[in-house]
């Protein structure tokens, strides 16, 4: 089976000169297609930093980071933008566009790069929202939705483009136990259908059972 993400001897530090603060030390990990990997670890251990490097949002200089076959170390912005379009992001805050309805928010993913008609986009987005249980909230704006519902909209937004990879950073942090677990189970269920790889950072020990593999990061090193 092919590896969707391959990280080899990745080193990353913030700052420069005497202020250099190493955050990731010699990280090596690979994720297969369809695998669900959870990253846990104490606060400040570098989990978020790791995720932003995988997502092509932060430039690392040492080691090797291959995502979907593209090398991210010393690559140009163009390649990263193209790769990002095949990644779905779920943030700790839902980060929905507050002037758009749930349906329009989900459509934003489909408007980046598409040959679909408006109608096809709407249908796909509506389908996705129905799948996350929001069929009756299609035309609600984010501030008319509950926290759990918003997070479900952002799951729909991440999945609707049929990404190869989902990156999620503490998606359950702003939700209560019940809705947090539901949201993640939903994510797992939908991702398994389409063989999507998931890399999920969490502190939430109740959701560890959805993972194929749990990786612990401590002080920038994988334990």
């Amino acid at each position: 089976m092919s590896n969707v993400i391959e990280v080899d001897h990745l080193n990353f530090s913030f700052g420069s000169g005497t202020l250099t603060q190493p955050v990731l030390k010699d990280v090596t990990i690979s994720l297969e297609e369809g695998e669900i990997v959870l990253i846990t670890g104490p606060s400040g251990s570098g989990k978020t930093t790791f995720l932003t490097i995988i997502g092509g949002l932060r430039q690392a200089l040492h080691g090797s980071v291959k995502v979907l076959g593209h090398q991210f170390i010393n690559s140009n912005e163009q390649i990263k933008v193209k790769t990002r379009q095949q990644i779905g992001y779920i943030f700790q805050q839902h980060n929905l566009l507050k002037s758009l309805t749930a349906l329009q928010n989900v459509c934003m993913t489909l408007e980046i790069n598409t040959t679909m008609t408006e109608q096809q986009r709407y249908d796909r987005a509506a389908e996705m929202l129905i799948a996350v249980g929001l069929g009756d909230r299609l035309n609600y704006k984010p501030d008319q939705l509950s926290g759990g519902q918003r997070q479900r909209v952002s799951i729909a937004r991440a999945l609707v483009g049929q990404p190869k990879i989902i990156l999620a950073d503490e998606p359950t942090a702003s939700l209560d136990k019940q809705s947090g677990y539901e949201a993640v189970s939903l994510l797992k269920c939908l991702a398994k259908e389409s063989q999507t790889t998931i890399l999920l950072v969490t502190h939430d020990y109740r959701i560890l059972d959805i993972a194929d593999r749990v990786v612990e990061l401590e002080d920038g090193m994988i334990k």
Partner: peptide, 13 residues
């Protein structure tokens, strides 16, 4: 700002 940053992460140029 946050909304634009989110869209950037999603692959908007």
């Amino acid at each position: 700002r946050n909304e634009f940053a989110t869209l950037k992460a999603m692959g908007y140029e």
